[in-house]
Design a protein around this nucleic acid. Sequence first.
DNA 1: AACGTAATGTACGAACTGGTTCGTTAGTCA
DNA 2: TGACTAACGAACCAGTTCGTACATTACGTT
Lengths: 221, 221
Amino acid sequence: MTTVEEPARPGGRIRDAARTKAEILDVATQEFARAGYTGARVDEIAARTRTTKRMIYYYFGGKEQLFTAVLERAYSVIRQAEQELEVEHLDPVAAIRRLAELTFDHHEAHPDFIRLVSIENIHEAEHIAASEALGKLSSPAIEVIRRILEAGRASGLFTADVDAVDLHAMISAFCFFRVANRHTFGALFGRDLVAADQREHYRNMLGDMVIAYLTADRSAD
Amino acid sequence: MTTVEEPARPGGRIRDAARTKAEILDVATQEFARAGYTGARVDEIAARTRTTKRMIYYYFGGKEQLFTAVLERAYSVIRQAEQELEVEHLDPVAAIRRLAELTFDHHEAHPDFIRLVSIENIHEAEHIAASEALGKLSSPAIEVIRRILEAGRASGLFTADVDAVDLHAMISAFCFFRVANRHTFGALFGRDLVAADQREHYRNMLGDMVIAYLTADRSAD
DNA sequence: AACGTAATGTACGAACTGGTTCGTTAGTCA
DNA sequence: TGACTAACGAACCAGTTCGTACATTACGTT
């Protein structure tokens, strides 16, 4: 992730707290994502690092806190990406579609993050709850959605009175499922949801779905 | 799940292979869903059974095969529920909405199954792949969807040329996400997607979304 | 240059965990 | 009724895993 590649000074150990910490986090992210929280091995993480297991306990305290730190950094990467949303200049329909596509792309580009979230849910989000950094700090994307929805309603393009968090859930659900359940879905239905030649198809499907929902005539219900 | 409660004959051990196997599967389902594959403890499963760890190895061979057996039975429960779909007499719009609601209800009613699927995806569906019973045997729900879509297109109600498997993915994504990611979503956005008083809201939202997608005017794109 | 502290490495141990060995009992069939 | 086998239980074992005690070294400061 944030790996700062430094030319490994040969012979003698180097002292670089920041690099050591970052390297541990990088490897830990991979290992936790690969095998789950319980399946991840502290020894394995240490072995794939230029430092030793001792340092994991020195810097993070233990396996549990290490996993929390991994989650915190993984979420901060997403937050950063969401900050860069520049959709104010677009019309509401295009803005929402753009937002959905960015979410789609981000999920596809970060399968490790998706796995970490799945794992954290198995553990009922206890690490997020224990984290001061992550607690109740909602995504800035919600604010963006809220403003787009407001503009869409004002201009009469959006018929429905949709909540921003709900719309975020709808978009995330589609993107998350496609990546997270790729394997069981593929095994059971013989279709790879993340196949490269299907990418545009599903990306359009998501946009169509969201726009259809927001602009649908709900009077017939 | 399929627990057959028998009055525990006091004193002396009883011999009932079927019941012992079923009881092991019941407890194993809970334990695997609770802690994940690696986190689940064979000793713990045995302890919560009226039999011993020896029997787990006697009947299933090992932890891996036990988990596979748990998955097989969990999926068979869903298959059975899907078989009972009676939507042929409904008009296409009502039929799709009905199907979506049944999926919604089933996911909500079986959170353990959702967790097992999440866990199996972390392990890249290797157990499903190793299972002869589950391999490439697609859900009967797909056939139902295909017939409804056909009728919908024929009557001119559905504008889009949507694939049955894709629509199944769309519906599942919403239902799955709501249950599977309940905890992280709740921690991050302060909203419980599975709260009882929000149930109707999300159930309607799913139906509206799917119908909007299927009946939308796609000519403007 | 001496020194103090942050950073690092080695070796080890106690508890746990999946799996097995060996022996026992209940039911059934000739 | 006696013997044969499926079903079962207790104890145990070998490998693993998180975590720590102790020793050591690099680097900034004075």
